[in-house]
Simulated assay, not measured.
Amino acid sequence: MRKSWAHEFQNTIFPDINEERFAVLYSDKPSRPNTPINVIIGGLLIKELNNLTDEELVAQIHFNTEYQYVL
């Protein structure tokens, strides 16, 4: 993985996603755990960079180890 695009994305882009900016979108009341915003934004970035549909992105996340490594 260290020689793939996934390693570079994980070390360069993923940590720079500022989750605090999105805190107002989440409830401060007890509720179910949310999906981390960096996973959501990271997935959307990968989707756009690779020109994927929503369905293709979900399939890649489920079956592609590079996508799982990144997110």
Rank of each mutant, 00 (worst) to 15 (best):
I37T: 14
D54M: 04
N18C: 10
I61Y: 14
K47A: 04
E66R: 03
N18H: 06
T53N: 02
V39D: 14
I37S: 07
D16Q: 15
Q68Y: 02
R2C: 02
I40F: 08
D28M: 01
P30K: 14
R2A: 02
F63C: 06
V39L: 14
E8G: 00
P36E: 12
H62C: 05
V70P: 03
F14S: 08
M1A: 15
V58L: 09
L25G: 07
G43E: 01
N18I: 09
V39N: 13
E20M: 01
T65W: 01
V24A: 13
R32D: 11
T35W: 00
L57D: 06
L25H: 13
I40M: 03
Y67P: 04
D54W: 11
E20G: 06
N64P: 07
R21G: 04
T65F: 10
F9R: 01
P36T: 09
P33T: 12
Q68T: 14
T65A: 09
L45W: 10
E56V: 03
Q10R: 11
D16K: 15
V58A: 08
V24Q: 10
A59Q: 02
D16C: 15
E66L: 02
A59D: 03
I13H: 05
K47S: 05
N38V: 10
E20K: 10
L52H: 11
D54H: 07
F14R: 15
E55M: 04
P33I: 03
R2F: 03
F22I: 04
F14M: 15
Q60L: 05
N34E: 12
W5Q: 11
M1W: 10
A23V: 00
P15D: 12
L45Q: 07
R21V: 13
F22E: 08
I46F: 05
H7R: 12
E56P: 05
S4N: 09
L44Q: 09
E56A: 14
L49H: 13
N51V: 02
K29R: 14
G42H: 10
F63T: 15
S4M: 02
L71D: 00
E8W: 02
L44P: 04
E66A: 04
E55A: 15
Q60S: 09
T65E: 14
G43D: 07
I40P: 06
Q10K: 13
I17H: 07
D16V: 00
F9Q: 02
L52T: 04
H7Y: 15
N51S: 13
E66W: 01
M1L: 09
N51W: 01
N51D: 11
T12Y: 05
K29E: 14
I46E: 03
I37L: 13
D28Q: 01
V39W: 04
E66S: 05
S31E: 07
K3H: 10
K3D: 12
I41K: 00
S27M: 01
E20C: 07
D54Q: 06
R32G: 00
R21T: 09
K3S: 09
F14A: 14
A6K: 04
Q10P: 01
E55Y: 02
L45T: 13
I37H: 03
Q10Y: 08
G43N: 13
W5R: 12
I37N: 00
W5P: 01
S4L: 11
G43I: 07
P36G: 10
Q10S: 09
R2T: 02
E56D: 11
L44D: 06
I41P: 06
F63Q: 08
P36S: 13
Y69R: 02
N11A: 07
I40A: 01
Y67W: 08
